[in-house]
Amino acid sequence: MVSMVLKVLKNLLKRPFTSEYPKKKSKVSINFRGVIHIDQKKCISCKLCEVNCPTGAIIVDPKKKYAVVDRSLCILCGLCAEVCPVKVIWFSNDYEIAEKKKKHYKKQLPGANPVKK
């Protein structure tokens, strides 16, 4: 019992460990895989990402040379970025990825420039 009381007393004098999330954004590392982005202009529609995706989240239209990502299916494994021969797929550091409607997940987000890792 004494050990627990000592532990509680020690922690009384410390600052809170938690942060006020919506007011203060928490930091993530530069390697964090958040939202998937595809540079549509440079896509060669080779379909390697579509074949390798475990959940079928990416669908490539070879005629329009356009890849659509359903972000509600994406499991953020990062395999598509590995297999892409021209390296046009990258993951940004955003972690607030929830949308209000399901169709919004198919909309392409205006992506930032690829981060050098």
Binding site: M4, N11, V28, S29, N31, G78, L79
Partner: peptide, 30 residues
């Protein structure tokens, strides 16, 4: 012992930060 539960999970948070830095994801590292 809810207080002890909080203490355990606070230490776990540091380990999850390491995963974030090393692998890119906190839970499913791949």
């Amino acid at each position: 012992l809810e207080t002890l539960f909080m203490y355990y999970w606070r230490e776990r948070e540091h380990i999850l930060d390491i995963f974030d830095e090393l692998t890119g994801n906190r839970v499913h590292h791949s």
